[in-house]
Amino acid sequence: MTMKSLKQILLSGFTAISATTLFGQAAWVEPDPINPNDSITIWVDLNKCTFGGAPTLASTTDDLYMWTWSPKEHPVGHPLNNGTWGASNDALKVQKAGNGVVFYRMVPTSFYEVTASAVYTSPIKLLIKKKDGSLDCGGAECKTEDLEIKITAPTTGPQKLYSFPRRKNKDTLSITPSDVITVFYDKNLETNDSLKDKEDFYCVVKARVGMGATDFIYFVDGDNIKAADRDIASRVPQMKMKNYGDGKFGLSFVPNRMFESINTGGQRILSVQYKVMRGYIRKQYDWVSESPEYWFNTMCQ
């Protein structure tokens, strides 16, 4: 092994550990987005797994194995079959990156013997286990819970909702929350008849400050509009979208500034999630159905 490859592996491991520390995912793939016909790495942070046996797996010196059944489970006799619960197939042994993080490299279409579209439609499902999964690991079986990694198909062509700057990866921007982000809405691609002839749009944004489902700060929660919030134009006038003409609307803002008055603890903004809606909510269809979330570059300020 050359010094360069060693450096690359260490760097990948460090990146993986950094990513999981920052984003709190138990399982993910790299690169992001992936090419299903090219090599990918499946990462699992055993410290983030919730099943009772996971802590023991995170610290064990024993070999660990991937057990996978989706997009396709290989039948008995296939060289990449999982093996048995008491004796995993050695071909599915994972490598350890340190700090309880393990990884497995594969080309998805070759490994699972499926088409690229199957990789996008059926998530990768797996768990990590000891060779004998039935052993006792702290009072539970020596395995993690079932883990799922959804692979999103690349988007091409015009999009109804998009950002400027564009996303660098699937849902991550290269900018930080101290930069300007502009959210665009292209009404020409709207399928909701209630919005097609309207022009009073507001981009109701909330900022994520933690990994929990409710770890947001907001002036109005666009995903849970209460009766008192119906007059969006009065509640969040600063979120009015500018009409750029040709059916396009946009809102430019600096997230750190936008939420400064309510971010009393000075928490770091990890992402913004938004919903485009009309200035006054009269009925359920007065908003765009999608509510995308864009993650910021958290490596720098």
Binding site: F164, P165, K168, S252
Partner: peptide
């Protein structure tokens, strides 16, 4: 003006450059 450095193929200036004066000079 803000410049998107991630655009690999731009067909018009607005693909890579956006006037963000109003958002920044508040």
């Amino acid at each position: 003006d803000q410049i998107d450095v991630n655009v690999e193929l731009a067909f018009q200036e607005s693909d890579t450059l956006l006037d963000v004066t109003q958002a920044m000079l508040t």
